[in-house]
């Protein structure tokens, strides 16, 4: 994974993006799990439940694994480092 970062492709989300990515992944997988269970029970075919779960997993991977720009909107604002010359002037 490090070679991607060295190519200039970012892999990190900011803190707010991480929270939203986790929430979205869980929401998608749970939703498709419930849909799959109801559908499979209705059709009396458990493989439909498994495939729907797999589809939800794929969707969650597509939406939350890559650090899309929407997860990078609130970067941390670091204070600017104080330079040595400023400290010398105060003395």
């Amino acid at each position: 994974m490090n070679f991607l970062t060295s190519l200039g492709i970012p892999l990190h989300m900011d803190f707010d993006g991480q929270r939203r990515a986790e929430y979205l992944a869980r929401f998608i997988i749970t939703l498709f799990g419930i849909i799959g269970f109801i559908w499979g029970y209705y059709k009396q075919q458990f493989s439909l439940t498994v495939y729907t779960c797999g589809f939800g997993f794929t969707l969650a991977v597509l939406f939350t694994l890559p650090p899309w720009p929407m997860y990078r909107r609130k970067p941390l604002h670091w204070q600017k480092p104080k330079s040595d010359t400023d400290q010398k002037k105060k003395k």
């Binding site: 991480q18 986790e22 997988i29 269970f37 458990f46 797999g54 694994l65 890559p66």
Partner: peptide, 29 residues
């Protein structure tokens, strides 16, 4: 969720837990 691999791990683990839960519900039904 701080890196690509830890996100992949979290999503896969949660999907498997949901699937196990549904299988158990199927058994109960």
């Amino acid at each position: 969720m701080h890196s690509f691999l830890s996100r992949a791990n979290a999503v896969a683990a949660y999907a498997l837990s949901v699937l196990a839960c549904l299988t158990f519900l199927c058994f109960l039904s």
